[in-house]
């Protein structure tokens, strides 16, 4: 579904008032960034999987891949003092042919360096070497594991995905990933396998830790919950299953002003594969580039201007403000995580 159609559907939902109105009513101001300490880079939409919840609509047929020139520009920006975290996502980041080089360069900057990997790809011969690249550069690996049961994960991520993710976790554990303090960091993103919101992050983390260790002998550091955003393939699922209006009404009813105050776009800038700048990865997939007169290409990046920019919002933003809040770093309400 093209982005205009997605925006039209999101804008015409009847279950709630517009996010803009709701936010401005609760916070008495427009949503604006306060800093930029996370540089999130989407290095391409190509992926070895085609997960049913994917807001990127990523898959093996996608050809959009970030060039080395754009990655170099990202590297220059990452050097700025204000940027404390470099967060790499996709698609499957490993399918960008420049990723290995980029991680070696970014690893020299002594900043928090995250790669969002589906892990399944690390079992393929052509990509298995990334485990050592990650360990060498102390990359924090984040993987999506929607369920600690194989059937739930496989329903969302494809047949056999669960077993392969566990296999890859085992390999990462052998490289000192996911163990206690001072180990290399292996975190899990949990998102619901269906049209409902995630539960309490702490309760889920405890259950995942118990189950994954006792049933599969694997360990990880932290679990973060992320609400499925009504964007891309997940929006299509909601529409096709007749859940769209109820889901939007549920997000709207669960609007939490505290979560709204801490949304990730206030401290993040998102870079698309072609160097376009966005407020977040979800806006990126809806084609909503930074606006309000801001520089919107990486080559024109200006942190002075962008750090206080007004955020481009839409009804999909309810996904980040429901309940305990949702972000690429998990719950956003202080104390909830």
């Amino acid at each position: 579904m093209d982005t205009n159609e997605q925006l039209r559907i999101l804008g015409s939902t009847t279950g709630c008032i517009s996010f803009k109105e709701r936010f401005e009513r609760s916070s008495k101001a427009s949503l604006a960034a306060t800093k930029i300490n996370v540089l999130q880079i989407n290095v391409g939409k190509r992926c070895n999987l085609s997960c049913r919840h994917c807001h990127v609509d990523a898959g093996p047929e996608r050809t959009e891949i970030m060039s080395r020139k754009i990655l170099n520009a990202c590297l220059d920006i990452a050097k700025q003092k204000e940027i404390s975290t470099i967060d790499i996502t996709g698609g499957s980041p490993e399918m960008n042919p420049h990723l290995g080089w980029f991680l070696c360069e970014a690893g020299k900057l002594d900043k928090r360096l995250i790669v969002r990997s589906n892990l399944v790809i690390l079992l393929e011969d052509a990509y298995a070497g990334f485990i050592d690249v990650y360990a060498k550069n102390r990359v924090e690996v984040v993987t999506s594991l929607p369920d600690y049961h194989d059937d739930g994960t496989n329903r969302q991520r494809g047949s056999g995905a669960f077993t392969r993710i566990i296999q890859a976790m085992r390999l990462l554990n052998q490289k000192d990933y996911g163990r206690e303090e001072r180990s290399l960091v292996l975190n899990i993103m949990h998102n619901p396998v269906g049209a409902y919101l995630p539960g309490a992050q702490k309760a889920l983390e405890a259950e995942y830790k118990k189950r994954l260790f006792t049933e599969h002998g694997v360990v990880f550091n932290r679990l973060f919950c992320i609400t499925n955003m009504p964007v891309g393939r997940y929006l299509e699922y909601l529409l096709n299953s007749g859940n769209f209006e109820d889901y939007m009404a549920g997000l709207c009813e669960a609007y939490n002003p505290l979560a709204a105050e801490n949304v990730m776009c206030r401290s993040t800038i998102s870079v698309g594969w072609d160097g376009t700048l966005y407020d977040c990865d979800f806006n990126q997939m809806l084609g909503l580039r930074v606006n309000h007169g801001m520089p919107d290409m990486i080559m024109d990046f200006n942190i002075e201007k962008l750090r206080s920019r007004k955020i481009v919002i839409g009804n999909h933003c309810y996904g980040c403000t429901a309940g305990i809040g949702s972000s690429c770093q998990g719950a956003t309400v202080v104390g909830a995580g």
Partner: peptide, 10 residues
């Protein structure tokens, strides 16, 4: 039922 789903209960 929704809360059970949210908590990952099978």
């Amino acid at each position: 039922t929704n809360k059970c789903l949210s908590l990952g209960i099978s």
